[in-house]
Nucleic acid binder design. Structure first.
Length: 310
DNA sequence: GCGTCCAGGTCTACC
DNA sequence: GGTAGACCTGGACGC
């Protein structure tokens, strides 16, 4: 459906979803929805995102739930949104919401545990991800060793200062070359990335020069252990960050513990008393390839009781 | 308003 | 292989 709006054209695409898909449960599956180019519009009840298409078009899309088996993506553009662009955007929407990932084994596994049957009932587990692995890795690097407020500052600065300008005052996520073209001093001073600056520069340079193909990680046939080693090979990505990047690649074997998860875990199981990582790992060991997803869902269970948990 | 302390992951040097 | 210290920012706290 296309309709003219002055010089702007509005295009709406309908995307089918798996049965019982929870749009807001996926949007709020972790903190990404609060980091640009994502933006939650609570009044309009949309998730707005900026997508960079392969032909260079920058598309601002508003995603909205149309019930349990459909969502819509509304794009406002200055030129007609062609069929190939619609197809590419549909694929990107499916990818960020993880609509094509098969969770049937996961739900079969958790349904064997009375304490986890709610996971199966609510059909949760799809973790929101960025359109590109590069964006996910950069953002994950910006979550390390700092408060969430500082993560937000770094990602806001990255997009507003280096990202391409889109409609509605939004910016897309910067391409690797845009970051690689900056100086260490700029990244420290204006992005507030501090000591992460050389790590961001090295990563962006390797990606921009084609020496590192991050996008291939999503379809890699390598074992999870091997992929973990590759992810850890990026400077600035340690155990925590690598474990969580793997979750966004559809591999859930690593817990990806940080201070927040450790705190939630100790509150839930040890009355707030600190426990070792080994103790936490022991509890989830029996869940094998799903342990990383189970611990995350368990620690964020209260988020699923509200449409907008934060 | 200013100075000090601390929390937050990762890397590197050292044992 | 394990450990200590440095890295940098922002918030909390005391003065």
């Amino acid at each position: 459906m296309d309709s003219s709006l002055g010089t702007l054209i509005t295009t709406t695409i309908t995307v089918s979803t798996p049965p019982q898909f929870g749009f807001w449960r996926t949007v709020y599956s972790h903190g990404w929805c609060a980091l640009p180019p994502f933006r939650v519009d609570k009044k309009e009840e949309t998730l707005d995102c900026v997508f960079s298409l392969s032909d260079g078009t920058l598309a601002v899309a508003s995603l909205r739930s149309l019930g349990q088996d459909k969502i819509s993506a509304t794009i406002t553009s200055q030129s007609p949104f062609s069929a190939p662009r619609k197809k590419e955007l549909t694929q990107l929407v499916r990818s960020i919401l993880r609509l094509d990932e098969d969770f049937s084994d996961f739900y079969r596994h958790v349904s064997r545990y009375p304490d986890y049957r709610w996971i199966c009932r609510m059909r949760v587990g799809r973790l929101l991800r960025a359109p590109t692995v590069f964006e996910d890795v950069v953002k994950m690097m910006c979550t390390t060793n700092c408060s969430w407020a500082l993560t937000t500052t770094m990602v806001n600065n990255l997009t507003s200062l280096l990202g391409p300008a889109a409609d509605a005052g939004l910016h897309g996520f910067p391409a690797a070359a845009s970051i690689a073209g900056q100086t260490d001093a700029f990244i420290r001073k204006y992005l507030r990335a501090g000591y992460r600056a050389p790590y961001l520069l090295e990563l962006s340079d390797r990606v921009a020069s084609g020496k590192l193909d991050l996008e291939s990680w999503r379809t890699s046939a390598a074992s999870t252990e091997e992929l973990f080693r590759q992810v850890r090979g990026v400077k600035g990505i340690g155990e925590y960050a690598a474990g969580n990047i793997l979750k966004l690649l559809g591999r859930y074997d690593y817990l990806g513990l940080d201070s927040w998860v450790r705190g939630k875990y100790s509150e839930k199981y040890h009355s707030g008393r600190r426990v070792s990582d080994t103790t936490i790992e022991r509890r989830y060991r029996e869940h094998g390839q799903w342990r990383g997803l189970i611990i995350w869902l368990e620690m964020t269970r209260d988020w699923f009781t509200k449409k907008f948990p934060f």
